[in-house]
Amino acid sequence: MSTYSVSDTQAAVAPRASLDLAAIRSGSYATGVVASLVWAAFGVSCLYWPDLGDWSRTQSLGIGAFIIAAFVLFGTLAADFLGAAGLALRKRAPWLVAFGAFVTLWEVATAKFAWLPLPFFPPPQAILEVYTDDLPKLLDSVLASIKLQLGGYLIGASVGFLTGVSIGWSQKIGYWVHPVLRFIGPLPATAWLPIAFFTFPSSWSASTFLIALATGFPVTVLTWSGVASVSNAYYDVARTLGAKPSFLVLKVAIPAALPHVFVGLFMGLGSSFAVLVVAEMIGVKAGLGWYLQWAQGWAAYANMYAALIVMSLLCSGAITLLFRTRDRLLVWQKGVVKW
């Protein structure tokens, strides 16, 4: 028997990021100190000039900025004793500089000198004010959005996955489902909105249906293509080893199609977000889309930005969750995109 080296398997493990990390470690504390100074500058910009408008949180924001500056400074100087947290701070120090500079500029350009026209460009303290003073309503909206999105997405993803596997596997089912899919699938789910809102018993069920529809189409098509593109060689191998049809579907077709399925789930997530927001703006009397619409009606621009930021965090969080799940299930794949 020949000899083989273990290095084959270990070579793949070496992280690509190690170079960057080494560079950051060897660098001085300069970036962290600069970040701290930039945040201190933000605090000064809040407190030094008087506000042009009437905002109640300017002082708290300024103090908050100084606290952040202090934390960054402490974290930078003590990074060697903080382990992973210290390393994470160092890695993000350039971003802290950029973000601190951005909020400083934002503060100066809006609240202090109004280079950007008010009230369309509210200052950071106005958004902070929304988060502190309008928190209950915002939280209710967040919960409503999550509930609607989660329900519709889970239904759409499950139905899409089952449909995709069925038409990928059985030509008979494909014969009936394929034309329907071709006819209905490409239609943007939002086009159904007017009909859905008066055919369904409640706007909530209508929206759930539309979100499921928006999710289901890409999941179905990608699952189908995944199952259809599984190499016959895999089936031959499994069959000669005594596999029954159920084994071929569950243990060969589905695992082999999983990378495609995740692409479908990702695409479905994107299009379902769009449907969610539109549905909430038009028919559902709750959720972040409704909040945006409501804020617009009152010309509460700060509330709109605040809701937009929350929405972005939620969507990004959902996609992160999906990618984490994928990374766990598809550890066997090489070269997956890191989110």
């Binding site: 191998v237 000669t240 794949q333």
Partner: peptide, 17 residues
């Protein structure tokens, strides 16, 4: 097919997952 007659193909066709 029956597992008493097993084939080894030219490509290993291992299941990558």
């Amino acid at each position: 097919p029956h597992p008493s007659r097993v084939v080894v193909f030219q490509d290993p066709t291992l299941f990558p997952w």
